[in-house]
Simulated assay, not measured.
Amino acid sequence: MAPIPTPPAEPQDNPDGYVGLDAAHAERLARRRGWTTVRSLPPGAIITMEYRAGRLNFEVRDDRVSRAWRG
């Protein structure tokens, strides 16, 4: 039987720390901290809900991060 896969480790980083930052700066910072995918979305965007390890999502309003979450 094949072993159960182990998901990749995520950065030990609090997404709430990105709220209020300029979107471009937040993305650069997130990548430096080890996030492999950073997704910027407009408020109310329709998105898929599958969880992806290593992905950080930003809701961006007026070029500022208004919400941030993993996956």
Rank of each mutant, 00 (worst) to 15 (best):
R33A: 14
R33H: 12
L21W: 13
R70S: 04
G44C: 08
V65K: 00
G20A: 00
W35H: 05
V65R: 01
G17A: 15
D62R: 07
L41Q: 05
G20W: 04
A9C: 04
P5E: 15
N57W: 11
I46N: 12
P15W: 06
R61A: 14
P3G: 14
E27K: 15
M49K: 10
I47K: 06
R61S: 09
A23W: 03
I46Y: 11
R31P: 07
N57D: 13
A45M: 12
D16C: 11
I46W: 11
L56F: 06
A26D: 09
G20T: 03
D62V: 08
G20P: 01
S66T: 14
R64S: 04
N57F: 07
E10I: 08
G54T: 14
R61P: 00
P7I: 13
R32A: 14
V65G: 00
A30F: 01
A30W: 00
A24C: 00
A9I: 13
F58W: 02
R32W: 11
R31I: 09
A23P: 09
L41R: 02
A23F: 10
D22N: 12
Y18V: 01
D22M: 00
T36N: 04
D16E: 15
Y51F: 15
M1R: 08
T36H: 03
L29T: 10
D16S: 15
M49H: 10
P3F: 12
G44W: 06
N14D: 05
D62S: 14
P8N: 03
I47P: 05
I47V: 11
P43Y: 07
V38Y: 06
A26G: 11
G71I: 00
T48Q: 09
G20E: 01
I4E: 09
L41G: 01
R52Y: 12
P7C: 02
D63S: 13
F58V: 01
L29V: 02
A2E: 09
A30Y: 02
A2L: 13
L41T: 01
Q12H: 09
P42I: 04
A45V: 08
S66M: 11
L29P: 00
N14I: 05
M1E: 09
A23R: 12
T37L: 00
W69S: 05
D13R: 03
D22R: 01
R67P: 06
P42V: 01
R31W: 07
E27C: 15
A24R: 08
E27W: 14
P11A: 08
R61C: 07
T6N: 01
V38M: 02
R55F: 00
P42H: 01
R52L: 14
D22T: 01
E50F: 10
Q12F: 05
R31N: 08
Q12G: 02
V19E: 05
T37R: 03
P7Y: 08
A30I: 06
